[in-house]
Measured scan of single mutants.
Amino acid sequence: MDPFVVLVLCLSCLLLLSIWRQSSGRGKLPPGPTPLPVIGNILQIDIKDVSKSLTNLSKIYGPVFTLYFGLERMVVLHGYEVVKEALIDLGEEFSGRGHFPLAERANRGFGIVFSNGKRWKEIRRFSLMTLRNFGMGKRSIEDRVQEEARCLVEELRKTKASPCDPTFILGCAPCNVICSIIFQKRFDYKDQQFLNLMEKLNENIRIVSTPWIQICNNFPTIIDYFPGTHNKLLKNLAFMESDILEKVKEHQESMDINNPRDFIDCFLIKMEKEKQNQQSEFTIENLVITAADLLGAGTETTSTTLRYALLLLLKHPEVTAKVQEEIERVIGRNRSPCMQDRGHMPYTDAVVHEVQRYIDLIPTSLPHAVTCDVKFRNYLIPKGTTILTSLTSVLHDNKEFPNPEMFDPRHFLDEGGNFKKSNYFMPFSAGKRICVGEGLARMELFLFLTFILQNFNLKSLIDPKDLDTTPVVNGFASVPPFYQLCFIPV
């Protein structure tokens, strides 16, 4: 058959498939802009700032609406009420993970971030239990974070109060905490193996944040037939998995079943207990991918939040002064901060919360999916439909947070200066898919920041009023603009 005829037939089939998918069930789905064949609503979305586009569309179609990214149908949730109703009140029905062709290629359905069903539930339950087990290797997770915080302070001392970009050092600290939990080992910041790991993690975040990856996920045929950065992403992930597998083999040879040292040991012990169960989800494949998931999810998000926190503290020296006064009063100079201190430091706690609220790190979270046909607000959402959640619409709700575009710790303080919780605080998402490392991340943010401010004054290279804190939105995360500062020993 003539190649031209084959091409026309293929394009015609794709067009018909697109029209059929977009028209099927439209009477039951939430409203939304009319999609174009094949490309859907992509032309109506700013790929570099999806969150802003969703906010604009919500003003037209309401808090629940339908979009098509290519052939992929998505239902968008915008605003606290619908997000709570879906992710919390109907948590089980909305607990699936959205379709990610690239991740599915890399992870093969294993791990904790992109798995679904029984596998996801069992691996998540085990990971939560293990991360909360403060007795691994007779050292609590808090001990590990405190140790890394001391190392971080010593690295900052080496800058000798000269101007520096904190990106690298602030990236090393949370990565080392995860390494300590998974591998029972922290690395020197100049260790070549550690630097290679950091390089792969950072490069992957840069790649994932590009519009090209959005295109690959919406048109998965590209993955096999086109060159691009997605190939580098898959190569980096394969490198990390190979490295983790080597460490798993080392653990198998040296493990003491009665004295687990780290996450890998705990997983291997669980595998041993379930070795007679042919349906067990505790396999080497799941261990390797879960460890890679924890490394990827637990490094860049925390380091970016820390980097943004220091920029905001530079911009608002009056806030920094209040935090340091609270540190001096509650902790002093002669001991290290600990998590028990947080309950006695409402202002510092409010500042950490406000940093996370203000920066809105992951504006749309990772997409969910419905696990069955769901009736939601008089609409029928078919099983498997991807759910896109606007966390921006919750964290920047102007009824809950007056002047949401302003950095103001009073958003989390009552009139008496006591810490005030808010149900709208969802930087880790909400419901059954809430970030498994939430507790660890909150511990790291509090301890790293208090250790830094206990030991250093922060000095800006320019007038604080002239510092730009506008986030650089890159399609996946909101990151701070480049800046330098000086760490002046107190």
Rank of each mutant, 00 (worst) to 15 (best):
C216L: 15
V76I: 10
A309H: 00
F476S: 06
R144H: 10
A106I: 12
P174Q: 07
E250L: 09
P3E: 12
R157E: 12
Y483Q: 04
P30F: 03
I47V: 13
V355C: 12
R433N: 03
H344I: 05
P427V: 10
T470R: 11
V8G: 13
E203D: 12
R333G: 11
G384K: 06
T34F: 09
C175V: 06
A369W: 03
I39L: 11
G296V: 12
Q278E: 14
C164L: 12
L395P: 03
K48F: 07
L54W: 03
V288G: 07
Q279G: 12
V374I: 11
T302Y: 01
E274P: 05
D341T: 02
W212R: 06
Q356L: 12
F226D: 03
T290G: 07
N423V: 12
T283Q: 10
Q484G: 08
V319M: 08
S140W: 10
G416L: 15
A309G: 12
F226R: 04
I284D: 04
M136H: 15
A309P: 00
E81L: 06
D2S: 14
C338V: 13
T392F: 04
N423P: 10
I222A: 09
Q276R: 14
A309L: 07
I257C: 13
R150F: 14
F407C: 00
H396D: 04
E241L: 08
P33I: 00
H344E: 15
V490N: 15
Y225I: 10
N258V: 07
I178K: 06
C338H: 09
W120S: 07
S242Q: 15
P63F: 02
R139H: 14
S95I: 05
C266N: 11
P489K: 05
R433S: 03
G27P: 12
K315L: 04
L361A: 12
I182Q: 01
H344M: 15
F126L: 07
K273F: 08
T34R: 15
N259D: 12
P363Y: 02
D373E: 09
S242I: 13
G79Y: 00
A369T: 12
D89P: 04
S12T: 14
C179A: 10
N176K: 02
T385A: 04
G384I: 00
D46V: 04
D262K: 00
E328T: 09
F482D: 14
G137T: 15
A161N: 11
S303V: 06
Y424L: 08
D397A: 05
I47L: 15
V352W: 03
V374D: 00
I178W: 04
L16Q: 02
G70D: 00
L233D: 03
A103I: 13
S390T: 05
R124I: 00
R186K: 07
G343R: 08
I359M: 07
I45G: 03
R433L: 03
L461G: 12
I215M: 07
S23R: 14
N277S: 11
T386R: 13
H344C: 10
M426S: 02
R150E: 13
I327C: 06
L195A: 14
P30H: 04
L413N: 02
M426Y: 08
I244E: 00
A103D: 05
